[in-house]
Simulated scan of single mutants.
Amino acid sequence: MKKFLTVLSAITLVFTSCSSDDSPSEETSSGSLLTKIVETYDDGTVETIEFEYNGNKIVRQTSDLDVRDETIFTYTGDLITKEEYFFDDGEGYTMEEVISYEYDSNNRLIKSSRASTGLAEEDIFTYNSNSTISFTTTSTTTSPSTIVATGIIYLNGDQPYKKTITEYPGTIWESSRVEENEFDDKVNPLINVVGLSKTLIACPKYIYGYDGVSNNNLNFKRDNVLEESSTYTYNNNNMPLTENYIDTSNSDYNSVSQYFYN
Rank of each mutant, 00 (worst) to 15 (best):
M1Y: 10
F4R: 07
L8N: 07
I11C: 10
I11G: 15
L13W: 06
S17Y: 11
S17A: 12
S17K: 11
S19C: 09
D21A: 09
D21H: 09
D21N: 08
P24L: 00
S25P: 11
E26F: 08
T28Y: 07
S29H: 01
S29V: 07
S29T: 14
L33V: 01
L34D: 01
T35P: 06
Y41Q: 06
G44H: 00
T48N: 04
I49G: 05
F51P: 01
N54T: 10
N56W: 02
I58Q: 13
V59D: 05
V67P: 09
T74N: 14
G77Q: 00
G77S: 01
L79I: 03
K82L: 05
E84P: 15
F86M: 13
F87L: 06
E91C: 07
T94Y: 10
E96W: 12
E96F: 10
E97H: 14
I99H: 04
E102Q: 12
E102G: 07
L109I: 02
I110F: 08
R114V: 11
A115N: 05
S116E: 15
L119R: 14
A120R: 12
I124A: 13
I124Y: 10
F125M: 04
Y127K: 03
T132S: 14
S139T: 15
T140F: 10
S143L: 04
V148F: 04
V148R: 08
I153V: 05
Y154E: 03
L155H: 02
N156F: 03
K162S: 01
K162A: 02
K162Q: 12
K163P: 07
T164F: 05
T166H: 04
T166Q: 04
P169H: 02
P169S: 03
S175K: 09
R177G: 12
R177E: 12
E180F: 08
F183C: 06
D184F: 11
D185M: 04
K186G: 00
K186H: 02
N188A: 15
N188C: 05
P189A: 12
I191L: 14
V194A: 14
G195C: 15
K198Y: 15
K198W: 12
I201D: 01
A202Y: 00
P204S: 06
D211H: 02
D211I: 01
G212F: 07
V213Q: 09
N215D: 07
F220L: 09
K221C: 13
R222I: 15
L226Y: 01
E227C: 03
S229V: 00
T233R: 09
N235V: 13
N237H: 15
N237V: 08
N237Y: 03
N237E: 13
M239Y: 07
T242M: 06
N244L: 11
N244K: 08
D247Y: 15
S249N: 11
N250V: 13
S251K: 01
S257G: 15
Q258R: 04
Y261M: 00
N262V: 09
